[in-house]
């Protein structure tokens, strides 16, 4: 092994093999997927991520939600994700068609969020939870995201978008209200859009259990 060309070509060829297999292949095979038509309604799965939810992805990324929350449901024989109620079926490539980036995640310090929009449908719950997680779940170790909210004096009538039902040490004092910033509204819109509970040809839903 004293020849430069041999080492040079060798290290490039070995690396090129995985580059072709694990980068170029998914780029070609998964990079141009189309949504699946929903014959019942004429719509498409997965549904388009729209409006505020698109901006919410940036807030989700900026504040590093992925370091504690995954967004993937593993299949049943391998894991108990489905039995744990993370979702009705495993997630497949098409589920991430409309998101940017794909927040698959590698940690479950907090619960998986693949279907958080199904489990918690109420925007105010999310605002309360982001503002002060421990006022909602006493044992939570999620940090407070109150830097995404404004504490302001109530001018006449309380604002329409003020967070309702806040309790605990971080609750606003009398005469004050907590109002979400645009970032907080976008983040909650994004969380509410997380619903992977539709069927896909490659991942149908299991028969309903009554």
């Amino acid at each position: 092994m004293n020849k430069l060309p041999m080492i040079f070509v060798g290290v490039l060829i070995t690396f090129a093999s995985s580059w072709l297999g694990l980068v170029v292949y998914p780029f070609l095979a998964l990079g141009h997927m189309q949504p699946a038509p929903d014959e019942d309604t004429g719509g498409y799965f997965p549904p388009t991520t729209t409006g505020l939810a698109v901006a919410g992805q940036r807030v989700y990324a900026a504040n590093g939600c992925i370091y504690c929350h995954s967004q993937q449901v593993r299949p049943a024989p391998l894991s108990t994700d489905i039995a744990k109620g993370l979702g009705p079926r495993r997630t497949v490539a098409r589920d991430y068609l409309r998101v940017q980036p794909a927040f698959l995640g590698t940690m479950r310090t907090g619960p998986d969020l693949t279907n958080i929009g199904v489990r918690q449908e109420e925007a105010n719950w999310h605002h309360r939870h982001l503002y002060d997680p421990r006022s909602v779940t006493e044992w939570s170790i999620m940090p407070s995201f109150r830097f995404l909210y404004k504490l302001q004096l109530i001018q006449g009538q309380p604002s329409d978008d003020a967070v309702k039902g806040l309790t605990g040490p971080l609750a606003p004092p009398a005469g004050y209200e907590v109002v979400p910033t645009d970032d907080a509204k976008a983040l909650v819109a994004y969380l509410l859009s997380l619903k992977r509970n539709y069927p896909l040809p490659e991942a149908p839903l299991p028969p309903a259990k009554k």
């Binding site: 690396f15 980036p101 794909a102």
Partner: peptide, 30 residues
């Protein structure tokens, strides 16, 4: 030799011209 190749590939496909969906996961972990 390997480092610039992987670093350029990952930045192009994930940061500058992101590819679609879960293929990002593949490139990310590669």
């Amino acid at each position: 030799l390997w480092f610039p190749w992987m670093y350029a590939t990952a930045n192009i496909l994930l940061v500058w011209q992101p590819i679609q969906g879960s293929a990002q996961g593949a490139v990310n972990w590669w």
